[in-house]
Design a protein around this nucleic acid. Sequence first.
DNA 1: ATAAAAGTTAAACAAACGTTTGTCAAGCCC
DNA 2: GGGCTTGACAAACGTTTGTTTAACTTTTAT
Lengths: 213, 213
Amino acid sequence: MKEQDSFDPKKRILAAAISLFAQKGFAAVGVREIAAGAGVNIAMISYYFEGKVGILKEIMEEFFRRYFLVFEGVDDKSKTPEACVRGLIHNIVNFVRENTDLTMVSYNELPLDLPEIAELKAEKITAMIQRISGLVLRMGFDPSDVFVIAVVGPSLISTIFTNFRFRPVLKRVFRFKFDDAYYERYAETIATLFLNGIKGLAEERKRKKRSTK
Amino acid sequence: MKEQDSFDPKKRILAAAISLFAQKGFAAVGVREIAAGAGVNIAMISYYFEGKVGILKEIMEEFFRRYFLVFEGVDDKSKTPEACVRGLIHNIVNFVRENTDLTMVSYNELPLDLPEIAELKAEKITAMIQRISGLVLRMGFDPSDVFVIAVVGPSLISTIFTNFRFRPVLKRVFRFKFDDAYYERYAETIATLFLNGIKGLAEERKRKKRSTK
DNA sequence: ATAAAAGTTAAACAAACGTTTGTCAAGCCC
DNA sequence: GGGCTTGACAAACGTTTGTTTAACTTTTAT
């Protein structure tokens, strides 16, 4: 592990922490390990981040800051709703690809109960939901069916995130090359999967409405 | 927290550990906390489980033991492939519902790097993949398209598991009652979602094959 | 009845934890 | 040059970690 990189200590600490947290989980990593990985003194962690959880906070802030950008420009009136969804899926896949460890740390810690970051989590998740549901409604979905929205959205996101989460496992079992072509095909596959799935749900809904009339 | 339940100490330790691990994650929970939750002496943990990771090992063993049963009897020749898939999804949803904490602990620790359980993980995952891929092929899927299988299967599982993983969050945002009716509808919704999605993928595949001929 | 085994306990263990302290050197402003 | 801030460090802080020990009680088997 390189210790003498030229960029500043704070960034080195952050980078080392992201990598270690992604690998072992936040609670399983000690400050000494982070300091060693970053090539800095232990005291620097409290100095720059006000403690270990301070690092996690900054990581999650950074994750959401970047993640929000994914939804920027997706709601394009000149394109069909279907094309918008395909675009969004491409965006998310590329985002996780370029920010894998950052995403994994945040995604892994999100469901865990850590009182020190409870507020931050609540705030970010609320903002997230607002942004997404606004987007969903403007993209041709039936707003009266909250249930389906509450199922399909999380399903899509968990599909992509989990694919990266179990990358080491997948790598051992399936012999894919995880290159540009793979991700291109992957994004298109799940886009087709979900678009057809949503279509099927809408049709079933119509059938049921008619039969109850 | 009840401490004087009549069943034996080992089960009490296991139950307390499962609950705490699910809530905070394995590494964030100490043996004293587990002992207190179970109402036993700290030394009992090493006595019955040979240490803290011993508990986790037993938890994961138990999880996979039960999880494997979900696939039992799903491959029913008298039913259509579609009905088989719907049945499987119902089984999985009910399984996670009845074993939520057990599932969450295993699912949360699976992607993390903990050397002491690396072997156990590898063994179980291999067994899992074998069982599933055998099932998938016998259920009317095109065995030549490994890629789609590698995408759809994990997507389905992550969808269900993640739904439970973020239950506290969902609970606060959407005002659903998580009762029998909810889970019934949930299972049917994602069954429709995935069955139509798979159908769409198969059609697209056919189209592409024809165009390249 | 008695000895062996199993169960349970409080106490102590070394090791690791996250954080704080005091110190020193370098760079800056006035 | 004196006073101040900032960055970096080693060392030590008190606490908590998981585990072990040895003594004690209860159960079981002979």
